[in-house]
């Protein structure tokens, strides 16, 4: 059920990507998609009543292993967030220039290339 909500978030992002005409809205859609995938990865690594994978001074190692959530997806998500940041920056740069060259941010008017 938790996964399905993340999936729903993903689909909302895809909806924005597919239907919205403004390039900015498309960027937002992609951001939501990325959020959803990151969330999915973190959910995958979650352990019921789990603790952060950070060993505290004096904490019992065995207890730590039993209680901690999965750290690996977190490492992946960190990478994924950064990749998302890069993508958004690139998209913003592209939209800026598209606005300059085409005079619009309406995606439905961007079809000079076809056929």
């Amino acid at each position: 059920m938790m996964y399905l909500l993340a999936l729903l978030l993903l689909f909302i992002g895809l909806y924005g990507l597919l239907v919205k005409r403004s390039l900015v809205k498309k960027i937002l859609g992609l951001l939501i998609v990325e959020h959803a995938v990151n969330l999915f990865l973190i959910l995958v690594g979650y352990r019921s009543d789990g603790l952060p994978p950070i060993l505290l001074p004096g904490e019992d190692a065995g207890e730590f292993v039993r209680a901690s959530v999965d750290p690996l997806p977190q490492a992946l998500v960190l990478t994924s967030i950064v990749i998302g940041l890069g993508l958004v920056m690139l998209m913003v740069a592209l939209s800026l220039r598209i606005h300059e060259r085409h005079g619009t941010l309406d995606c439905s008017k961007l079809n000079r290339l076809k056929g």
Binding site: L17, L110, N111
Partner: peptide, 17 residues
């Protein structure tokens, strides 16, 4: 066939889905 390639991102995304 060329008429199918409308140049609209939405169409292309739709094909992918």
């Amino acid at each position: 066939l060329r008429r199918l390639h409308t140049g609209w991102l939405t169409d292309y995304l739709f094909w992918c889905f």
